[in-house]
Write a protein that binds this DNA or RNA. Structure first.
Length: 297
DNA sequence: ATGGCAATGTTTCATTGA
C-alpha cells in the first residue's frame, strides 16, 4: 500500500499536474489539502477515470481537503463534528476498503496508462472488512505568533486532539496525513536559528504537534529517515527551492499497527519542479501488504 | 525590517499563504 499527502495550492490550478502525478505514481491513497474549491467544482470525474474515488470537504477560495483512493470509501466525515460550527474546511476522514491489496504498479490490475477504469474490487475478505481509516488535515497557517489566527491554529490543534481521542480507533490501521504547518524539530528546518520563534517553528506549535502525535501516532517519515531533512515545502520566492531552503511541515502520522508495516518514505521533489508547481511536494509512504493479504486472503 | 511568488476574488489591487 502506497499512501501520499500533497498540499496542491488550488486543485483547479493544479488539476493536470495532480492527474499526471497519480497516473505516474499510482498511490493507493492521496490526501489533498488547499483545494480552494467547493466540492461542486472538484474534478471528481477526472480522478474517477483514473480509478480513484474521492471524499471531498471543499470551500470556496480557501482551505479545502480531500481523500482520493483506489477502492471504495466508506463512512466519510467532514469536519470534527464537535459542534463548533467552524466554516473552514480543513478535515475529512474516510475508511478506505482494501487499499493496497491489488493493483500495484506493474500488476496490470490498474489498467494501461490513460485507460479509463472503474474502482477496483475489494481484495482479501479480512482486509475489506477492516479497511484503513484515513484522515486528511489542513492545519491553519497561523499567520504570526501571537496573532488571532495563531490562537485559532492552536485551538484547532486542540480540537483535532480531542477528535482523535474521542472518535478515532487508534488500535486499528489509521493514517492522519496532511499539511500540519509545523516543523517539529531543528532537522526539519533549513535554518533553525533564523526560524526559531517564528510561525511554523515556535515552541507553542511544536508542543501542539507533539500533543497530536502523543495520542498514539507515529511520525513515520521521520522514523524511517532519522537523519535526512525531508523538506516538503519551499517558499516560491528567493530561489528557495533550488537552494533547498525548505521546511518539513507536511506529515504522515500512522497508528502503531500500520507503523509496523511501513517500509519506506520519501518526498517527491520532482513534483515541485517545472512550470507552476505547488509550493509543497508530495510526501509518500509505502507499506508492506498485511499478513492476511500476503497469505492470499 | 522588508520583499521576494502564486492563487483567488474583493480584479488593475487586497488578502492569504508559509
Amino acid at each position: 500500500m502506497k499512501v501520499a499527502t500533497w498540499n496542491v495550492n488550488s486543485i483547479r490550478a493544479r488539476r493536470e499536474r495532480v492527474l499526471a502525478w497519480l497516473a505516474a505514481n499510482e498511490p493507493d491513497v492521496l490526501c489533498l489539502q488547499e483545494l480552494k474549491t467547493e466540492e461542486a467544482d472538484f474534478p471528481g470525474e477526472e480522478f474517477r477515470a483514473l480509478g480513484y474515488e474521492a471524499a471531498v470537504c471543499g470551500q470556496r477560495t480557501y482551505n479545502g481537503v480531500a481523500i482520493l483512493a483506489r477502492g471504495a470509501l466508506r463512512d466519510v466525515e467532514r469536519g470534527f463534528g464537535d459542534g463548533t460550527d467552524d466554516p473552514q474546511a480543513r478535515f475529512v476522514a474516510a475508511t478506505v476498503m482494501a487499499a493496497g491489496t491489488a493493483g500495484a504498479p506493474g500488476t496490470g490490475v490498474a489498467g494501461a496508462p490513460g485507460e479509463a477504469r472503474a474502482p477496483r474490487a475489494v481484495g482479501a475478505p479480512g482486509e475489506a472488512a477492516r479497511g484503513v481509516r484515513v484522515m486528511s488535515a489542513y492545519v491553519p497557517n497561523g499567520e504570526a505568533v501571537g496573532s488571532e489566527k495563531f490562537a485559532y491554529k492552536l485551538a484547532w490543534c486542540e480540537r483535532l486532539v480531542a477528535h482523535l481521542r474521542a472518535r478515532v480507533d487508534l488500535r486499528g490501521e489509521t493514517v492522519l496525513a496532511g499539511d500540519f504547518n509545523v516543523a517539529p524539530a531543528p532537522i526539519d528546518v533549513h535554518d533553525p536559528a533564523a526560524w526559531e520563534g517564528h510561525v511554523l517553528y515556535s515552541e507553542a506549535e511544536r508542543a501542539a504537534f507533539a500533543a497530536i502525535v502523543g495520542v498514539g501516532l507515529v511520525d513515520i517519515v521521520r522514523r524511517l529517515n532519522p537523519t535526512a531533512p525531508m523538506f516538503s515545502w519551499w517558499d516560491y520566492r528567493m530561489l528557495a527551492f533550488p537552494k533547498n531552503r525548505g521546511l518539513r511541515i507536511d506529515h504522515v502520522l500512522v497508528s502503531p499497527a500500520l507503523a509496523a508495516r511501513a517500509q519506506s518514505a520519501y518526498v517527491d521533489r520532482a513534483a515541485r519542479k517545472g512550470k507552476l508547481p505547488s509550493d509543497h511536494a508530495p510526501v509518500v509512504v509505502e507499506f508492506a501488504e498485511s499478513a492476511a493479504v500476503r497469505a492470499g486472503g
